[in-house]
Structure formats: C-alpha cells, structure tokens
C-alpha cells in the first residue's frame, strides 16, 4: 500500500489515511525522499488527523523522515496529531524533538509560508 504524495507549488502535502503498518511507513519514507529529490520541494506538510495510534516504532520512522527531509533542505510540519495520540506519545516518553507541528493542514501551510517566505 502506498501513501499518496500531492504536490502544491513548492510544497508537498501528505495526508495519512490508512492504518500505518511498518511496511507502509518505510515505503512512505522512501517515496517522500524520492519526491523531494525530484521536485526540489522546500516545504512538506504531513497530516496525521486520521491516525489514531503511533507507537515508538512509527514515531521513530516519522522522526527519521523529518530529519532526512531537513537534510535534503525541506522543512517539515506535522499537523493534526490527535490529543489521544499526543498523550500516549508523551506518556511513553517519546518526544519528537525539533519537529515542527501545527493544529491542522491550513495552519501547517501558514507556518511553512512564514518560515520560508519570512
């Protein structure tokens, strides 16, 4: 199963709508990095509104994706992390340090614009 990656100008938009199994998560990591390379994207919004569980493994994959994208010169904002997911992550002791977040897709795009266009 592949997660669709949408292009919007300089940005890439990803909305994760499926149950994230490990294989899908890894495939997504690969697809996203290729897409950044292809399109020379500067900003990425990953929307997690429909994700109702993130365990430490998936958290690591997401954290890695963010770090790798940053290395390739693209800023990443995670949006729509649900309260229940945030609480679970914090209780597990998983902190997504240095990762930018926003409430929803709209605010995520705003945040990218502010950072990239001043």
């Amino acid at each position: 199963m592949r997660i669709p990656i949408l292009k919007l100008g300089n940005y890439l938009l990803i909305s994760i709508q499926v149950e994230l199994d490990d294989q899908t998560a890894l495939l997504f990591q690969e697809d996203l990095l290729n897409k950044i390379h292809q399109e020379g994207s500067q900003g990425i919004v990953i929307d997690l509104t429909s994700v109702d569980m993130i365990d430490s493994y998936i958290a690591k994959v997401i954290g890695d994706v963010v770090e790798m994208s940053n290395l390739m010169g693209a800023k990443v904002v995670l949006t729509g992390i649900q309260p229940a997911v945030a609480i679970t992550l914090v209780e597990m002791g998983v902190s997504l340090n240095g990762v930018q977040t926003a409430l929803d897709l709209e605010q995520g795009l705003e945040k990218l614009q502010q950072e990239l266009e001043g």
Binding site: D52, M53, I54, D55, S56, Q82, T88
Partner: peptide, 27 residues
C-alpha cells in the same frame, strides 16, 4: 492492535485509553 481497539472501544474506554491500549499492544 485492531482487535485491541475494537475490544477497548466496545468496553467503553475513553479515546485516550483506547490509544494507550492499542499502543501498548503494538509495542
């Protein structure tokens, strides 16, 4: 974890507890 989610939902656990239970199962 899907089985855990269904079961915890059916028992009436709050959404946060559902997330805690499914995450624990996943780990």
């Amino acid at each position: 974890r899907q089985a855990g989610r269904e079961l915890s939902k059916g028992l009436g656990f709050s959404s946060v507890d559902q997330a805690r239970i499914t995450t624990a199962i996943s780990e």
